[in-house]
Amino acid sequence: MTVTAIVVGCSAGGVTALQTLLGGLDPRLAQALVVCCHRSADDSANLAGVLARSSRLPVVEAAEREPARGGVVHLAPPGYHLLMESDNRFALSVDPHVSHARPSIDVLFCSAAQAWRAGLVGVVLTGANTDGAEGLRLIRRYGGIAIVQSPASAQAPAMPQAALDLAGADHCVPLEAIPALLNRLCLA
């Protein structure tokens, strides 16, 4: 199955982990990347700008109804859930927080699984809660590929551990190995 898109979820320690992840991605990737990183609603820090400095792919904040573009990293905006529609466009919601988080990884992953089905790769990185586990389970159920950062290599192991416990993983590897793995899956 060809990979159409990659969704990534992270929480505590996530920015550093994302810098490592994005820094190792091949700039030839043609897949859309969508990242949900827990942050507070009034977070005015320019996360896209920070991540862009480490990434060879362009990094932008996802906007309501804009299409997910191949070879671009899209970030969930603070204070809103980010969802994927089946027409490949983004949707936002202010539905209640999930696992104390908005944006929630589960919300993104579940909608992305419905939109992209078996063409989706889900990645769960460091974090101190259980968000993402349910979403990763759905991605696997719909035939997508699940990658989990090995808890031992995570700054906060709880989130990858929760994902492993609930969803299992097709690949459970240290953070440093994830970019090469994604390059291989996507450029194959």
């Binding site: 089905r117 078996a118 159920r141 719909y142 035939g143 609930l166």
Partner: peptide, 18 residues
């Protein structure tokens, strides 16, 4: 069971759409 793959012909996601 989360571990059991779906064996139906159209797939669970398509079923959800319906």
């Amino acid at each position: 069971d989360p571990e059991s793959p779906s064996h139906d012909d159209i797939g669970e996601a398509a079923l959800t759409d319906i």
